[in-house]
């Protein structure tokens, strides 16, 4: 008891520091976004949001997310599957490569695509001949976003699938299930919460990505502007209220994502508890 009593001071100091930090770094800016957004009243807010450029930016953001997220769903599941269920040469290299988008700055990620597909890039001349634009167009934005968000699903699934091992899959195959049946009936149900969690994080980043997208976008209003880019443009033009209004939409999307994430985490914990729970009470068998 004495030991814990002494630590009480330490504990409250630590909690206090954490709370002050949270308030300063997270809550205050969040409050500011909304207060600035409504600084000129509700009609101005509404005006800023339904303005065509803002709407097109929102549409583009949703379009990009709706391509990048499913692409990374397929990639993430495939990568996690082969890493956790098979032994092969170069496995560690693959794991490191998956982390690469997290390790490099998003601006550099954007630069890579400019160097590959830009007018002066490796494939630039060929693309020009085909009259197909990647850089300063939607395909570039999709590519950059997909690249930057690639690790989320795979990172979430690899430890989960490694922990679960492959015995259940082996059992399914011995019982005559095909690979696809095994995946749908055995693997997928076991990883669904982890997968959903990874997808939510992936989606949050896909909608919020600025750096990489900024490099490849070209900032063409109504064409290649995503929501984060639109916020920046408005801000640079001193349209503060409008800028914050659009930012508040993006923030709302983030908050919804956060709520979903919490819900999934809760579900995940429940699934784990269900799995581990009554283990410790073995019954006698009636032989």
């Amino acid at each position: 008891m004495a030991a814990t009593a002494e630590r009480k001071v330490v504990r409250w100091t630590l909690i206090g520091i954490a709370l002050v930090f949270l308030a300063l770094v997270l809550l205050l800016p969040l409050a500011l976004v909304f207060s600035q957004a409504f600084a000129k009243g509700l009609p101005a807010y509404w005006e800023a949001i339904k303005e065509p450029d803002a709407l097109s930016a929102a549409k583009l953001t949703l379009l990009v997310a709706s391509i990048a997220v499913p692409a990374n769903l397929v990639f993430g599941v495939a990568a996690a599957w082969c890493i956790s269920k098979f032994e092969f040469w170069g496995k560690n290299v693959l794991i490191t490569l998956i982390d690469l988008p997290f390790a490099v700055s998003p601006v550099i990620s954007g630069m890579i695509f400019v160097l590959l597909f830009g007018a002066q890039g490796w494939f630039g001349g060929w693309l020009f001949e085909q009259d197909f634009k990647i850089i300063f167009a939607v395909p570039g934005i999709v590519l950059a976003t997909t690249f930057v968000t690639a690790p989320f699903v795979a990172r979430e699934l690899i430890p989960l699938m490694q922990e679960q091992g492959s015995e259940e899959e082996e059992a399914a195959i011995v019982l005559g299930a095909s690979g696809w049946q095994t995946f749908l009936r055995v693997t997928l149900p076991n990883i669904k919460w982890g997968l959903l969690y990874g997808l939510i994080l992936c989606n949050a980043r896909a909608m919020g990505e600025f750096g990489a997208v900024s490099v490849v976008s070209g900032h063409i209003r109504g064409e290649t502007n995503t929501l984060p880019l639109h916020v920046e443009i408005l801000y640079n033009e001193y349209a503060f209220a409008a800028s914050f209004a659009v930012a508040s939409v993006l923030t709302l999307l983030a908050l919804v994502t956060l709520a979903l994430k919490t819900l999934v985490e809760w579900q995940q914990r429940r699934a784990v508890a269900e799995r581990v729970g009554p283990d410790s009470t073995p019954e006698r068998i009636a032989a």
Partner: peptide, 28 residues
């Protein structure tokens, strides 16, 4: 494996954890 028609009982059972006992047995 899937064509060999063997029954295999794993050391740690490897039951499908998200399925009921009935569905586990019905799987094959």
């Amino acid at each position: 494996v899937r064509e060999r028609q063997v029954g295999f009982v794993f050391q740690h059972y490897a039951l499908f954890r998200h399925m009921s006992v009935f569905e586990n047995i019905a799987f094959g």
